[in-house]
Design a protein around this nucleic acid. Structure first.
Lengths: 187, 187
DNA sequence: GTCTATATGCCGATAGAC
DNA sequence: GTCTATCGGCATATAGAC
């Protein structure tokens, strides 16, 4: 049995995440989700008010785990700003590649009912701004932070959606791009 | 009358693009599209084999126009590599901000039936690689090009999806990030 | 907490007449 | 080239029994 049939709310959310990671969000139906849990669709409504609330909970979890990955990376990397920033950006990509569907979903959803606080991304990224300030200067730390987020998000999205088709070492390309970007602020 | 009722294939595609730009892809139905054209849904099948083919045609048009914008930017910008690259990247963002829904659609679609040649993005961006080579050296021109694409795509996507919520001048942030990235390769 | 039955609605696509 | 009629399917969600 691929999925347990003990159905509390966390189990429902975890199972839905697995289904989304396997097939994407679009084909996810409450009927299929219920089937994966060994129950019928209407039973889900005892645990979740509706589908949007379910997706919201999933997206909140995704962002939470992404920023847990940040914290772990910061804790183990060398203390200098350059190393800290490198570590965070690489942990970002590693997370996204490990959870392509749920990562994409969390960062592209615009429906207010399915989307965590609009501020959550930039709020949880605040600690990184201090590192950025040490590199680019306090004045430019917000633009510098946003550029860094843009670079890694963009790289990962193009990668996940199959837009890098000419071959080559994407790990090396990512590292080189990140280093170039950081270097550009160190003037 | 917001839409003409003269229905040839180009008109159908143009009207569909307008509807997508107004409301996004998800709510687009063939019934609504037909209504906007002053006809009934089944009539569409005389011009387009199915919905996927329609979306494919739209995405092809979007990419074509994006790269037309590139060409126009390159033609008017100063001839030095730094200015040329700046001009292209800024024209990229300008295009995306002007066509948020169709831009996002074209660059995130993975369904093979709705998606232009997987190579199209990187193929049509080839001319820019020459500029990048002049800045970063021939050896690194592909990673440098990919990083540049990642930076602008990521910035624009975060911007379009409302992930930059802390205020500030996004135009300035974009320019600063692009300049930092370019500077980082000029060593 | 799960079930059956069902409301309700929408959608893409085809057949065949005009 | 457009129409009407319709097939076939699927989805979210509710009501009410067990």
């Amino acid at each position: 049995m691929p999925y347990p049939s003990q159905t509390d709310r966390p189990t429902i959310i975890a199972t839905a995440r697995t289904l989304i990671e396997d097939n994407g969000v679009e084909p996810l139906t409450l009927t299929d989700l219920a089937a994966a849990l060994g129950i019928k669709a209407p039973s889900l409504y005892r645990h979740v008010p509706n589908k949007a609330a379910l997706l919201l909970a999933i997206n909140e979890l995704t962002l939470q785990e992404l920023f847990d990955a940040f914290a772990a990376a910061l804790a183990t990397a060398p203390a200098d700003p350059h190393s800290q920033l490198q570590a965070v950006l690489h942990s970002y990509r590693t997370f996204a590649l490990a959870h392509p569907q749920t990562y994409s979903l969390a960062l592209t959803t615009t429906d207010p009912n399915e989307r965590p606080d609009a501020h959550q991304l930039e709020q949880m990224v605040l600690p990184i701004q201090a590192i950025m300030a040490a590199i680019s200067g306090t004045e430019q730390s917000l633009p510098a932070l946003r550029g860094a987020l843009a670079l890694v998000h963009g790289f990962v999205m193009l990668e996940l959606k199959g837009q890098f088709q000419r071959g080559g070492d994407l790990n090396a390309a990512f590292a080189a791009a990140v280093n170039a970007y950081i270097r550009g602020w160190q003037v």
